[in-house]
Design a protein around this nucleic acid. Structure first.
Lengths: 369, 369
DNA sequence: GCGGTTTACTGAACCGGTTTAACGGGCAGT
DNA sequence: ACTGCCCGTTAAACCGGTTCAGTAAACCGC
């Protein structure tokens, strides 16, 4: 019984101990029907006694597949997890990968490089979240030729994608707010996690609207706000990481800068709830003094006080669809054509929005300025 | 240029195309200083032209390490992600693994078996979350002989562990509530995610208190409640999954069963916020009619209305410590002795707790029953 | 012009499995 | 007794890298 546990036993050790070939041991585990039952039993017995487990890496190498899929994010994981959105997305992805017996590997930049991380990743396919055209390594990632499904990113012809109608959702939110009579609207945009606005890159220079999630939502907001005659200067757009704290800080900052919005359009529920908290600090009553609209419709929105008016997007389903698309693609031998899914958003009106307050006591009313 | 992209190019293809040996190609990537600079450049040029990337699995097999660590959870990932606690824990783990260049693999039961998932996992080590003694596969997991750090689980001599003083934290919460004069206390315990109570397994049969997180917290609560003369029957303990919805449903259920607590001790912040929402449905004012204490001190607790009184535990740091312990253990050649860290908890009093309401109009006062 | 050291590169072993083709022995059929 | 077939098992090739030991050529000093 006093085995010298110097190194992990390998298949050859088991074979020797059982007096059979390596092939027989392999069969005992993977094709028992090819062996006489008692031989298979004996081999398995010896294997257990020796504490043998097939080496998963060797198995992968031989099988030419890893039974693992990756979730790729352009941000460090510590940032990714700080955004509650991610948990629901991952819930969706994992529910289908798990069902099909796949493991889940998180892929985030390795020493600053996403490409390096991707090259090191032992996966059969990747679900890429929020990878936009402006990413510096985009070309290398494209070339990696790993089966990949893009989520919340501009579709590439060669890869399937899952998107959500961000623009329409955002427009609905803004129309709702305009319809309630609001004229002073603050937009809180997402920075970093999930979407990267990078407003002053791109060929057109200046304030270009790229195709990131943030950009699409912003376009949706503006498409309702501008026709209504509201002027949305750069001053009335603030940017924050998509966390509770981010939203709180962003609203307080705007307030200190002298902004006095009667409505807030936040690009995520986390931001909205942060703004809600900030408004409590400032003794603003929501929705009486201030209306707030979120985006995502995470469960937490139902649990705030007041419950949050928000744009619903099927976060979980986005994850599910992406995973399904990826697994389907892996199953299909030949290069099956890329598919592009566009999921719907819809406005969910709860109780964080109401008619704009009468404009008494606030600046001049009517003419001027 | 019209390369036949039948299969992924391998090192031998590059070697042939460049007119060198496989070894030279390998050196060009990993030990360029062993080659004449122009040779190395030429090889790399050919590699790029062919679109060659070293096969990560082959590399792992040869290197005998994966540069990946696993996070093991006894629940399916879709459940794990539903518990907001996990995101913060993962944030902690990933912040240190990332810094050391390790990838992160999520390990959850595969077709019902954790052992199977663990056997398939290509990791150098594992952080196991909430794995308690009663887990049916505990023996097999122990035998797996993968470096492992246990979190929120009874420490094993052979593995390092990170725990939190759940019992003291829970006691502090209960003492707080008792000190405020509450006599009717409802306990909402965690089921499933993170901790598995499994109350009627175990050698002692019946309602045994094992060593799961739930069990330790329960013991903490009782150690303050019982000396104060409160009777805590099984009726005043309800169980729910550690989610917002779980907490809401649990409180409503208790209320329908006729329970009229003046205080709630919830074993997680998610549960507490769910209960808070339920109390709003029931038109109970918190903290005037009902006091609520959470556990964890997640950021969301600061953003509820009223802000949540809760037991702080360093969730992020728990993840960090576990990852650090694991990586230290991997670094040390010999079997370094297991370390056991016990982190502190502390009560954070915010505004969801207040003195118990006077007992007028509720049942009989004074004598009897 | 010779021994000794570098330099630049290669051949082969190795990591630990899976799988294919083949092989020997026993048995049935003629 | 010989052919043909099936069964249980095995030898060897393969997956795609890394690395160790070794070698041939160039360089060095004397």
């Amino acid at each position: 019984m006093q085995q010298t546990r110097l190194r992990r036993p390998r298949i050859a050790d088991v074979a020797e101990a059982a007096g059979v070939s390596k092939a027989a041991v392999s069969f005992a585990f993977n094709n028992p029907e090819r062996l006489k039952p008692e031989t298979a039993d004996r081999i398995r017995g010896v294997a257990i006694e020796l504490g043998y487990r097939p080496h998963p890496v060797a198995r992968m190498l031989s099988a030419q597949r890893t039974m693992t899929i990756g979730v790729l994010t352009p941000q460090p994981l510590s940032q990714v997890f700080a955004n509650p959105f991610f948990a629901y997305f991952a819930e969706g992805v994992s529910s289908v990968t798990e069902e099909h017996g796949f493991g889940l590997l998180l892929i985030s930049p390795l020493r600053g490089s996403l490409t390096r991380a991707l090259d090191r990743a032992t996966v059969d396919g990747v679900v890429a979240l929020g990878l936009d055209e402006n990413h510096p390594e985009i070309e290398a990632i494209r070339r990696a030729s790993v089966p990949m499904v893009l989520v919340d990113a501009p579709g590439w012809v060669e890869h399937s994608s899952v998107q959500v109608d961000d623009e329409a959702g955002a427009r609905a939110a803004a129309e709702h707010v305009v319809g309630l009579g609001h004229r002073d609207v603050l937009i809180i945009a997402v920075e970093g996690p999930v979407a990267n606005p990078s407003p002053d890159e791109g060929p057109n220079g200046g304030r270009e609207i790229g195709e990131s999630v943030t950009a699409r939502r912003l376009r949706g907001y503006l498409s309702a706000l501008e026709p209504a005659g509201l002027e949305v200067g750069p001053g009335s757009i603030v940017v924050a990481p998509a966390t509770f704290e981010g939203g709180e800080a962003a609203f307080l900052r705007a307030w200190e800068d002298g902004l006095r919005p009667t409505a807030v359009l936040a690009m995520s529920d986390a931001l909205a709830i942060g703004a809600l908290q900030a408004s409590r600090h400032l003794r603003l009553r929501v929705p009486r003094d201030l209306s707030i609209v979120g985006f995502d419709d995470l469960p937490i929105g139902r649990f705030s006080d007041p419950p949050l008016t928000t744009v619903h997007q099927p976060v979980r389903r986005k994850g599910e669809e992406a995973a399904r698309l990826l697994l389907d693609g892996l199953g299909a031998k030949a290069g099956s054509p890329a598919q592009h899914r566009m999921l719907k958003t819809r406005l969910v009106v709860r109780r964080s929005t109401a008619a704009a307050p009468a404009r008494i006591g606030r600046e001049e009313v009517g003419v001027g300025e």
